[in-house]
Design a protein around this nucleic acid. Structure first.
Length: 490
RNA sequence: GGCCCCAUCGUCUAGCUUGGCCUAGGACGCCAGGUUUUCAUCCUGGUAACAGGGGUUCAAAUCCCCUUGGGGUCACCA
């Protein structure tokens, strides 16, 4: 085994929020780095000043932290490294591997159109490479605009050994001619900046999306011109939407923060995304980050793209919600209740129901959340599930009180019975309440007739937690109050 | 269009390197049943795939070729 420490990098451009596809790339870099006990570099590729925004950079970093991807070095910003690029670019200029090209955008565009009409692949056909030193000097002195192009050797086979895809071969003649590496002001373009940075930052393993395969030969050509080592490559297949197209906004949420806002747990996303394009080969699919790192193998990654299946995410999220400690789950849920204006925070352990103005302790909320731990698929639905605990008036149609095809009289009697039973309970204990109610329900030989109207009366919903638990948490007074209100509806 | 990549249930995948253990396994979803006062949870069972065609071989999901299909990429963007 090699003793050399590996170093990977994640290099997003801050032109949007961190999306699922990029998250996957970051995550796999992280998994590999952790597995190999190497280092992870975060590099912000913000050379495009027009589109790069600081808010996106913030979102990317916060999102990575949230899901549990930690970086060891950085963040480095390309916008702050122009001296480095200049240094390497000058090397290329001096060695004559790169030359100024004075062709106008219009001329190139026209050229491209013609080539397309002739059904030829677009390529640079300018002859600026053959300009003499005197001609160049003169054109520069005349103030003409120009860019730096690198000479691409023709007819050479470039071979890369991709850790995921295996051997990939390219003919340098297919690249499209000499390509631009930097602008007149020596500011670098993507491929050049990327090669320089990877080398300068000591990156040993480039793990990135499939869509960069076609950049790889260009980057190898730059590396060779610079006479620097070529890192090892691993190209991950893309993540697709349900329609098998590249995952995009029209498929719904693609930004990681949207998943956070919908109440997905970071561990669930970590687990789910890890299994997109990789699989430990075991029959279980729920694993902690530590376990995933332990089992992870880059070489076992899928070569073909994976479809993002939200249903499976929901399932995994449910599993994580159910296995969460109730205290933690309550902490996770409270912000959603506050956001929906159901609760207001008074102090760290005390809350207030916005509608009734009643004080609610953390412990009480915890008990309520406890009733729904098995029912929650994602945190943002907690409000609609438990809101009735914090309301003054429940809004529901009286028909909802009717159990199957029972008559109105029977329902009245049933609710009346519930009232009498609750009135008679001396010790307000969960087990006691359940025991007495269930006993009576059994005696009636029709459990639903007693318990259904009771549930609706106290919750106002057709689906809820057990009525015993609700009654208990509501307290005797409020439970009776709600039953009486139900009676009035009939 | 050129170039590159890919191809097992609807979806995520195991199996493919080193052909036989594969009448192709698991998970999500879906369907049915059980538990149950509802909804969930939980449990049981079921549904459903080697893209097609040629080879090679005693034997192919596994190796080779072709076809088809899908995706990516072809900027003075990253």
């Amino acid at each position: 085994m090699s003793l050399k420490k590996i170093r990977v990098r994640f290099a997003p451009s801050p032109t949007g929020n961190l999306h699922i596809g990029a998250t996957r790339t970051a995550l796999f870099n992280f998994l590999y780095a952790q597995k190999m006990k190497g280092e992870f570099v975060l590099r912000i590729e913000d050379t495009d000043k027009e589109r790069s925004k600081e808010e996106y950079e913030d979102d990317i970093m916060r999102s990575l932290e949230w899901i549990g991807v930690k970086w060891d070095l950085g963040p480095f910003r390309q916008s702050e490294r122009s001296d480095v690029y200049k240094k390497y670019l000058n090397k290329l200029i001096e060695s004559g591997k790169v030359y100024p090209c004075f062709c106008t955008k219009e001329k190139l565009e026209e050229n491209r159109k013609k080539q397309q009409e002739r059904k030829e692949p677009p390529r640079y056909e300018g002859d600026c490479a053959s300009l003499s030193e005197e001609e160049r000097k003169k054109m520069i002195e005349d103030g003409m605009d120009f860019v730096f192009r690198i000479k691409v050797p023709q007819g050479k086979i470039v071979e890369i050994q991709d850790k995921i895809k295996g051997k990939i071969e390219f003919n340098t003649s297919d690249i499209g001619g000499d390509f631009v590496v930097a602008k007149k002001d020596l500011s670098p373009l993507y491929n050049f900046a990327c090669v320089v940075d990877d080398y300068d930052m000591g990156v040993t393993d480039v793990i990135r999306g499939d869509d960069h395969i076609s950049n790889t030969p260009k980057q190898i050509i730059i590396s060779e011109a610079l006479n620097i080592p070529i890192p090892s490559f691993a190209h991950l297949p893309l993540i697709l939407g349900p329609d098998k197209n590249k995952l995009s906004k029209r498929h719904g949420a693609v930004s990681l923060y949207e998943y956070k806002e919908q109440g997905y747990l970071p561990e669930a996303l970590f687990n789910f995304i890890s299994l997109l394009g990789w699989n430990p080969g075991t029959e279980e699919e729920i694993y902690s980050p530590e376990k995933i790192i332990e089992m992870f193998l880059l070489e076992k990654c899928q070569k073909s793209p994976a479809v993002f299946d939200i249903e499976k995410l929901k399932y995994i999220n449910g599993r994580y919600i159910r296995s969460r400690k109730i205290e933690q789950l309550t902490k996770d849920c409270i912000p959603f209740l506050v956001k929906e204006n159901i609760l207001k925070e008074l102090s760290s352990n005390n809350y207030q129901a916005v509608e009734t103005k009643k004080e609610v302790s953390f412990k009480e909320i915890e008990q309520i959340i406890g009733l729904y731990q098995e029912r929650l698929k994602y945190l943002s639905e907690v409000g609609e599930l438990v809101d009735y605990f914090f309301k003054e008036e429940l809004e529901y149609e009286k028909e909802l009180l009717f159990w199957k095809n029972a008559e109105e009289e029977e329902i009245k009697k049933s609710i009346d019975k519930s009232i009498k039973i609750l009135l008679n309970i001396k010790e307000w204990e969960k087990e006691k309440i359940e025991e007495i109610l269930i006993g009576e329900a059994n005696r009636m030989k029709n459990r639903g007739l007693l318990l259904w109207p009771l549930r609706v009366a106290v919750s106002g919903k057709k689906a809820s937690a057990s009525p015993f638990d609700i009654v208990y948490l509501l307290g005797k007074e409020e439970a009776l109050n709600r039953l009486k209100k139900a009676l009035k509806k009939l």
